[in-house]
């Protein structure tokens, strides 16, 4: 599990913005979100003692 991956993808997306590669930067943004959510589920393991 690479904790730096979301930041690497975001930086790559910034580089694509700089090179005016819109499609690729959107794809890398999407990958940033997917990896961030996946890493969140990986870390959010402790059960919360709430009842609704």
């Amino acid at each position: 599990m690479y904790m730096f991956l979301p930041f690497l993808l975001a930086l790559a997306s910034c580089a694509c913005v700089w090179r005016s590669r819109a499609g690729l930067s959107y794809a890398l943004w999407s990958a940033t979100i997917v990896v961030t959510v996946a890493w969140f589920f990986h870390h959010a393991t402790d059960p919360l003692k709430f009842s609704f």
Partner: peptide
Amino acid sequence: CLLQRAGFIA
């Protein structure tokens, strides 16, 4: 905390 930073970057 790092994931929140990544979220703000997004």
